[in-house]
Nucleic acid binder design. Structure first.
Lengths: 332, 332
DNA sequence: TTGTATGCGTTATCAT
DNA sequence: ATGATAACGCATACAA
């Protein structure tokens, strides 16, 4: 079942069938109708591999994320699939496990020319890898580890988002705000940015930054959040609020607090970042910053589509607007 | 950058390069080394489209699920990607939104011959669609809407899993067990099976099945679970336990109960089904049935791989083992 | 053990 | 507005 078969059935040449399928404008209405009827009758689908071989286009873009078990990335993936679908593109999801090697390999001639472009959300790469980004495949970067790179970049408004939530905690009278999930060694990346915004907001209010209130946490999972709070309690550190660098950490933190008989928010307020679906339904519901994933997905796909259609202007850097969601976990 | 270039660089013919890349055994070690060196030096990747055009294989399989925002499917996707990776296969995720039309279209010549096989988890299809499954693309069905179809089938042990959790609730002395997420009209599918196992377990214990304890819920989301319990409370129905047909419903249900000042499990025990990551970290932690998604993914990929390598034996029907996780939400 | 010739299904180019 | 022809990069069959 090839284009030739369709052409034969419609009484035209293969090229005409191709033209119809690709929306070539100069076709007589009568011819188009005939061809479409034949396509329908034979239930014909074009062979994408053959087209790709000739034209270089597959209609597939890849989304490289650490893992789908993290709801933030799963929800981002859903949003991306939807946004891509509106442009007739299919999304191929690649999970890298936040592993540097696997992230780099996702960059190398993605999937043997099988994808037209790449939406790329690296956790293990940094500014030192900026050269690796000069791929031939169009790419849009999601995240904040590599600034002013050679490619388009869609970012979360980490600074203002964090400031908003920390101000909220301070306005509620909290003064000993623990922060969990920090990465002490790192100078770049989401952790460093959010932590920096945390300290500068405390400074604004004249609240001292206390080292023992910052708890490292490598993987931003529920279990790390639970462990972090456990550690604070065991060390006897006093705190009246927890700012978790993402929602999963916050949910894990609340789990430990409640398990230890503490009240949220009365004894300790908890806030997170991401606004994953889960956060609206936890008990108590979690105060968090919505990073704007719907808009991020949409913007990233739009940028990529523009590149795919040949735009080679200078790299764009776009910051998605954040939104603070105040819920029970911080309300006095 | 084609195979010819590599061949030229290595001083051999393209065919030899092809042989090396495909693991053809009868190659002199010296030749193989030369070729591999050239591949490495030129950073060559094979063009998958070209291979597909000739051989029919792409090394890509598709996983069709309703949506990734549901953590069960996201976690299943992660497990599938991992299992497929061990066979050198890439996974392309297709979300159908549980929409019948989109599910059917995922079936039709998937992605223009771009995928070798399909792992298919339909929610909107039923036995009446069994003919649609007779595709030319190898396929493995995940779920329980279509039994004894023409294709391999990996199933959750819904009956025994449900029985185990209901017995547990009964053993704890619960006698008015609400069940939420039922689908009254449906004769097939997960909802009907789990609800059937619920009623038969009650019967075993001589506990009457009360109609008003069964609350319908179309989409199995947190919000539906919250609404279902809301409805029970508003109707003044008495109940000492909630069996939610999946974890998301259960988490939503707990949210409403706790929000209304009820204690879980003291006043009402809550149990779910799926054992998504979230359930171990809710407050209280959720008792649930692990449907065995890791094993389901592994088994499904194995079955598909066997089909891809030409096995055309009769369709297999495999039931993954369940595991009951007892947590705080049901412990007296 | 390696090389040569051919064709997979589509699109680009050019012609009509 | 439509058609003829060649070529994309690889694998297959067959030859050497």
């Amino acid at each position: 079942m090839t284009m030739r078969d369709v052409a034969r059935a419609a009484g035209v040449s293969p090229k005409t069938v191709s033209n119809v399928m690709n929306g070539y404008p100069y076709i007589r209405e009568e011819t188009r109708t005939k061809v479409l009827a034949a396509i329908d009758a034979l239930d014909y689908r074009m062979n994408i591999s053959a087209r790709n071989l000739k034209s270089g286009r597959t209609g597939v873009i890849a989304l490289a994320v650490p893992e789908l078990s993290n709801p933030y990335f799963a929800e981002l993936a859903d949003a991306t699939i939807e946004a891509a679908g509106e442009h007739g593109l299919t999304v191929m999801i690649e999970t890298t496990g936040a592993d540097r090697e696997r992230e780099l390999s996702a960059l190398a001639r993605p999937r043997g020319h099988l994808v037209d472009g790449l939406l790329y959300s690296p956790l293990g790469l940094g500014p030192e890898d900026v050269d690796e980004l000069k791929t031939s495949t169009p790419m849009v970067l999601l995240g904040e580890r590599i600034f002013h790179g050679p490619v388009d970049h869609v970012m979360i408004d980490n600074v203002d988002g964090t400031k908003a939530v920390i101000r909220h905690l301070l306005d509620q009278g909290r003064r000993r705000i623990a922060v969990i999930g920090v990465r002490p060694g790192e100078q770049v990346g989401t952790a460093a940015i959010r932590y920096g915004a945390y300290t500068s907001t405390l400074a604004e209010y004249g609240v001292p930054v206390v080292a023992e209130l910052a708890v490292p946490g490598g993987a931003w999972r529920r279990s790390s959040g639970a462990d972090a709070v456990q550690e604070l309690l065991e060390r006897g550190v006093e705190f009246d609020a927890v700012f978790a660098l993402n929602d999963l950490l916050a949910l894990g933190a609340m789990r430990t607090l409640i398990g230890r008989g503490m009240r949220v928010p009365e004894d300790v307020a908890v806030a997170g970042f991401d606004n994953i679906d889960e956060s609206a339904f936890s008990s108590p519901a979690l105060t968090t910053v919505d990073a704007g994933r719907i808009q991020i997905a949409r913007t990233a796909v739009d940028l990529l589509v523009r590149r795919l259609s040949g735009d080679d202007g200078p790299p764009a850097e776009i910051v998605a607007p954040y939104e603070l969601h105040l819920r029970e976990s911080t309300r006095n």
